[in-house]
């Protein structure tokens, strides 16, 4: 039995009622087909109205759905010959981030991503997909390997955040993420990042610097978990719903802001309703994007990446007022952002 979300309840109840009527028809031989048809039509309308206009908070619930496809599902579904590689070579292996090499569309790639579990036991092993510094360091080790061997990099992001524990702090959680940001910025290898579920703050960004950012339709990406924002703003973590609505964290918001490059549609009702279809959609999108990026000389990628991130932010006053909507038109070229001529030349 699938795990149902609270806002789906009216629909579930209606469907149970239909089942009941159908059984009644069969057992008692009384024809209820007209009633069944009416109710089925009603259920379709109801489903439509629930899933077409999901609130940000409902999307957060879908993004956290325990049956949502995980990073390993995507890797296994999209790639052949996956070889998992372990360890950061400094301290230990971190099962909250998985990584390795695989074959995608016939060529070798490096994959890394946060990994959640399906049940309590698995989640304890995976630390609920919340990585320690060693996880980020393992990811960076594998990504540097990708650069060395000329492989593109695919990162899957689905984490509530980096793990906030005493050991994580002692071993430099901040430093580990910071190192990933600055080193990923300079990698001479194509990087495609996909937020598949939760994009939780710095812990997500630690695998999220790349040439393209894709996001699933009901995924969210936020500077702070909605519950934590509520705790800070209104001293009440149960106001997560209110915070989620105020913070513009959906894929649609981020697409409007020009931060996400592509929003990938999910099967009706969410990725967990048809994981195979979801994986096909992601695979097709990655296939197109990677082909595009692999045509760019690797040395130019950090320069283009710089331009991409340079445009992000909303700043008033000074020489130019900048709003996100302006970006698509003028390319967001700030006077200070102009490339050095010799750097720009190397692009051609």
């Amino acid at each position: 039995m699938a795990v149902e979300l609270p806002f789906e309840k009216p629909l579930i109840e209606l469907r149970l009622k239909i089942e009941e009527l159908k059984r009644f028809t069969e057992e008692k031989g009384i024809d209820m087909s007209v009633e069944v048809a009416t109710l089925e039509a009603k259920a379709r309308v109801l489903a439509e109205s629930i899933y077409r206009d999901l609130t940000p908070w409902q999307k957060v619930q879908i993004a956290r759905h325990p049956e949502r496809p995980t990073t390993l599902d995507y890797i296994r579904g999209m790639c052949d010959d996956f070889v998992e590689l372990h360890g950061d070579r400094c301290f230990r292996e971190d099962a909250a981030i998985i990584g390795g090499i695989a074959r995608f569309d016939g060529y070798p790639i490096t994959v890394v991503g946060t990994q959640k579990g399906r049940d309590t036991k698995e989640n304890i092993f995976r630390n609920f997909g919340m990585a320690h510094p060693e996880g980020y360091r393992k990811a960076l080790r594998l990504m540097k390997q990708a650069e060395k061997f000329g492989r593109p990099i695919l990162t899957f992001i689905d984490t509530a955040g980096a793990y906030p524990g005493a050991g994580a702090e002692e071993r430099g959680q901040g430093e580990a993420i910071a190192r990933n940001l600055v080193d990923m910025a300079g990698l001479r290898a194509p990087i495609v990042c996909i937020v598949t579920g939760e994009g939780g703050s710095g812990g997500a960004l630690g695998l999220g610097i790349g040439d393209r950012l894709l996001m699933l339709e009901h995924a969210y990406y936020s500077v702070i978990a909605p519950e934590s924002a509520a705790a800070l703003l209104w001293k009440d973590a149960s106001q997560g719903q209110r915070a989620a609505n105020a913070m513009s964290i959906t894929a649609q918001d981020l697409s409007r802001f020009g931060i996400v490059d592509e929003v990938l549609p999910e099967p009706f009702g969410g990725a967990h309703r048809d994981p195979a279809a979801m994986i096909r959609t992601v695979k097709a999108a990655v296939s197109v994007v990677l082909a595009e990026l692999m045509a760019i000389p690797p040395a130019n990628l950090p320069i283009l990446r710089y331009d991409k991130y340079r445009r992000m932010g909303v700043v008033m006053g000074g020489a130019i007022d900048r709003r996100p909507a302006d970006d698509s038109e003028d390319g967001g070229g700030l006077p200070g952002a102009e490339l050095e001529p010799e750097v720009q030349d190397s692009r051609h």
């Binding site: 300079g186 703050s201 610097i209 990406y221 936020s222 703003l233 991130y309 992000m312």
Partner: peptide, 26 residues
């Protein structure tokens, strides 16, 4: 830390400064 009131834009400043510091280092 990152400013909550500017949401994802604040998070992206971490990325933006990192790419600039990568260039400084380069």
């Amino acid at each position: 830390g990152a400013r909550m009131q500017e949401g994802i834009f604040s998070l992206m400043q971490m990325a933006k400064i990192s790419t600039a510091l990568a260039r400084l280092s380069e």
